[in-house]
Design a protein around this nucleic acid. Structure first.
Lengths: 351, 351
DNA sequence: CTGTTAGCGCTTTCAC
DNA sequence: GTGAAAGCGCTAACAG
């Protein structure tokens, strides 16, 4: 932004934005020519000399194209919306960055909205974004039961479900394989020689968690270990809820498990603090594993065994899928990325 | 969203969105009447019976107003952009929620953009948002030197600087009093009887940190304590940098301070881990204080003494200021909110 | 209370 | 190569 512009000021010093017509008038040529000269795709259609005059004039007047007006004509708004559940969740950041890195090269801006994990808010948001004529929507905060709303919207605008999976839905889903991740933790416990294990379940309405449960349980069963029944599930996948469930687990069971799988990292960290409070040691008395591989997990002591969640890649892939749909591709396929086990100090062999 | 709509499908089953004209044609009335009936502010101007017919038809056809087209006429886009430095910073979340809670009642959607703490990115972003004709911008990620860009943009659209202060700038600034917060920590150390103190400085280009430094230093001086000179400042206000500076402090100084003020909470937590690594105890050997009162700080052991940063309130107030400017109010004033000291276990009297 | 006309700022035929 | 005219979907001003 230079400041050597002839601004179109009104009597109050407030600036009226220069339009195409202003530039055209300045040069006594037609708006169409200005439009062509300033569009990278069509600028070759106009004489080099006039094009240069136009660029000079546009700069001098501080002309900025009006994206809104353009989109009225072209039908594209250069906007993609990402609908998340909770902006405070750090899990979201890499996903957002992945989306942004893919769409920004197309001159598209991701706009971010938040549902607070409320399906009605999701409905309202979808409605609103339909009104804004966004080019596509990526739902990273879907809950069980949100399928129909999303499918309905998909008839008007490209929709992608990402990060949190949804089953039996006709729109493309970009996730990672939570089932396989759960299996990996179960297998890891078995490899370490544990015999009695337990889970701290995340909320069932967020489908990642039931899948982790399934995978874990199947690995445990096929290895012949014993799993203590889950008493309750977390209301939200947070530190506090992890602590609450861990308390209950230690209160209720007559057996104490030697290895515990918490469905995500914050829950695991909450559980760790409870384990210590109760005078037990990690990993000597209880091994514990989380899920996601958040930045924190390598810093705490001992380091938390977890599964890396490829957030950036999920975001990037979801954006790619959204762009393909917008470009009119028909059968765009779902994507499932692979989990990677990150063994650290919080899990150890049974002595 | 109901699904009992007569959709306007083309031969491929793709849905064309219904427009005002479609509804008008359906009812054989004029588009203006439809427009009026559907606008809450003007719906009283139209006959109750026709209004009801219009609403019914609009619903049946699945009509959604086109916000873009409307804004071309009204000049307002119902959009406010929040420009942040780093979406991964949890400090941001309450600020964003504060903004959203204020603007959403006006039907305005906040768009969130990220600069990665790069002033050139800020420039580009401002430029782009000017093209989108957003109603106002709130810059929460400003760095020293960003003033001129922001002031230039302020001639075209309401601009507010929030959270991170900027000095000598002609746009309203909504912050909290970092100077006073620094003073509080200094005073707290003095009250506890410490004699030799030190700081871990945050990056100087983010003006909150120099202000915290000023406040702290002035309190230390007027209480007659000795402050060890700072060797270096953090490149970014993070855990890692806090750890690095703490290492250097313990390496370089022949004196060991008995109380350390880290310029934010992540830096303080990084420093704590280093202090322990070196075999020193908190708070018996070294007291430590942070800044911001992030969710984590009450969970670690011992709890971190810190200053509460009123993020939600700052966001809310910044949005209020932005809306006032947009409404045409002239001299909207800057706002400065008060810090609150949160003493916890990480600081203690000198034995 | 309702319809007609005009136009927001841009792109897109279609002539020349 | 360039210009004139039309129109995207909506609201605003003015008649009636």
């Amino acid at each position: 932004m230079t400041d050597t512009t002839d601004r179109l000021e009104d009597s109050f010093g407030v600036v009226r934005r220069a339009t195409l017509a202003d530039v055209a008038r300045d040069l006594k040529i037609s708006p169409s020519t200005v439009s062509r000269a300033l569009d990278p795709n069509r600028s070759t259609m106009v004489n080099k000399a006039t094009r240069e005059k136009i660029i000079e004039s546009a700069e001098r007047l501080g002309y900025r194209p009006d994206i809104q007006a353009r989109s009225l004509m072209t039908g594209r708004t250069q906007t993609i919306v990402v609908i998340a559940a909770d902006l405070g969740n750090r899990w979201l950041t890499p996903i957002l960055h992945g989306v942004a890195s893919r769409v920004s090269v197309e001159g598209i801006v991701p706009i971010i909205a938040e549902t607070n994990d409320d399906s009605r808010v999701l409905d309202d948001l979808i409605d609103h974004m339909l009104s804004r004529r966004v080019d596509a929507m990526i739902v990273v905060g879907a809950r069980r039961g949100d399928g129909p709303s999303i499918e309905r919207a998909a008839r008007m605008v490209p929709m992608v479900v990402a990060a949190r999976p949804l089953q039996d839905v006709s729109v493309p889903v970009v996730t990672h394989d939570d089932r396989r991740g759960g299996e990996m933790i179960g297998q890891h416990f078995a490899d370490l020689g544990h015999r009695v294990v337990a889970q701290l379940l995340g909320p069932g309405a967020v489908l990642n968690f039931p899948l982790r449960n399934e995978g874990f349980t199947s690995a445990i069963e096929s290895a012949g270990l014993r799993q203590l029944p889950a008493i309750d599930e977390a209301l939200r996948p947070t530190y506090d809820e992890g602590a609450r469930l861990m308390h209950r687990l230690l209160d209720v069971s007559s057996d104490v498990p030697t290895a515990v799988f918490a469905h995500n990292d914050p829950m695991a960290i909450g559980a760790m603090s409870v384990i210590r409070e109760r005078g037990l040691r990690i990993p000597e008395d209880i091994s514990i594993a989380g899920y996601n591989d958040m930045p924190l997990t390598s810093l705490i002591n001992p380091g938390l065994t977890t599964v890396r969640y490829p957030g950036w890649e999920v975001g990037h892939a979801a954006a790619e899928v959204a762009l393909r749909l917008f470009a009119g591709e028909e059968a765009v396929e779902s994507v499932s990325l692979n989990p990677v086990l990150k063994p650290r100090g919080s899990t150890a062999p049974l002595p």
